[in-house]
């Protein structure tokens, strides 16, 4: 008992920042948002508790269509990011040694020293009607007039994958790095070809990294606002844009809060399904 009080004080001091951060910035606002989302304005400054905001989401096709579209696009972007990042990570982690390895890993990080806004503008400079790609195609005689490559789903997808790549490469390189080379060699030695070794040894080993990378990328993509708006324009139909509109343009905080809550719940369900399908657990994927 004598050792109790000082130990407890130390523990409290150590936990204080995270507890304050969680309670003040995450839990409190969410409770408030939940309360706001559960009321409707019946007259100026008169509110009633009701589920009307949630009902509106499901009855108004625009809202849940936008949500479904955002979810599907995010899943697709996550899958594409994984497909691109896996070979890159494998090459960095397993094929390279020493300085080249560090250099290449660093080169993956370099673009992220620039803000997301600037990076997205970079894509706009490339893809817009008077942009570099359009001019190049005209100069080469491949198209007659200027081509608009912005403001469509492909542009959004490019931007999302590009923005997310790092968050997939880092966990993948880390897990693949921890794969003992002799396991790969044993895989070949016992008669496996490249595909079999990849499928039975490399991918199962990298599964926690794949899961954590996918969760991060999916959450970032789903909650991304800048990239879909800038590259997709007014018609991007991104769910975060709907939330923004409710809060800022229409000043309908009640519906905006309901949307915010739905985004949280639905994205959690999708992540849970993903984890169940891949046989992973959340605690394992953050190791």
């Amino acid at each position: 008992m004598k050792a109790g009080p000082p130990f407890r004080l130390g523990l409290i001091l150590l936990l204080a920042p995270i507890v304050l951060w969680l309670s003040l910035l995450v839990i409190l606002p969410h409770i408030d948002m939940l309360l706001i989302s559960l009321r409707v304005r019946v007259a100026p400054r008169v509110y009633e508790t009701s589920l009307a905001n949630y009902v509106e989401f499901f009855t108004e096709p625009l809202y849940w269509n936008t949500f479904a579209r955002t979810a599907i696009m995010s899943v697709t972007a996550t899958a594409m990011t994984l497909l691109i990042a896996f070979p890159v990570s494998y090459y960095i982690a397993k094929m390279l040694r020493g300085r080249t390895k560090n250099l290449l890993f660093l080169l993956c990080l370099v673009p992220f020293w620039v803000s997301e806004l600037v990076r997205t503008f970079g894509w706009m400079i490339l893809l817009r009607e008077t942009g570099i790609v359009s001019n190049l195609l005209q100069w080469a005689g491949l198209t007659a007039g200027p081509v608009e490559m912005l403001y469509n789903d492909a542009a959004i997808m490019i931007g999302l994958v590009y923005t997310s790549l790092l968050f997939m490469v880092v966990p993948l390189v880390t897990t693949l790095d921890s794969l003992d080379d002799s396991l790969i060699e044993a895989g070949y030695d016992l008669g496996g070809n490249g595909f079999a070794v990849m499928r039975t040894i490399v991918v199962p080993h990298a599964m926690p990294g794949i899961a954590s990378g996918c969760i991060v990328v999916f959450m970032l993509t789903l909650g991304n606002y800048l990239t879909p708006i800038l590259l997709g324009g007014k018609d991007s139909l991104w769910f975060t844009d709907q939330i923004y509109t409710q809060f800022i343009t229409r000043f309908n905080w009640e519906l905006g809060s309901a949307f915010g809550f739905l985004l949280l719940v639905l994205s959690s369900i999708i992540v849970w399904i993903g984890l169940r399908l891949s046989g992973q657990t959340l605690s394992e994927s953050v190791k």
């Binding site: 003992d180 002799s182 060699e185 044993a186 030695d189 016992l190 039975t200 040894i201 199962p204 080993h205």
Partner: peptide, 13 residues
Amino acid sequence: VNMVFQHLALFPM
């Protein structure tokens, strides 16, 4: 030819 590796390299998965 098959090899028993130095650290055995049994597949942990």
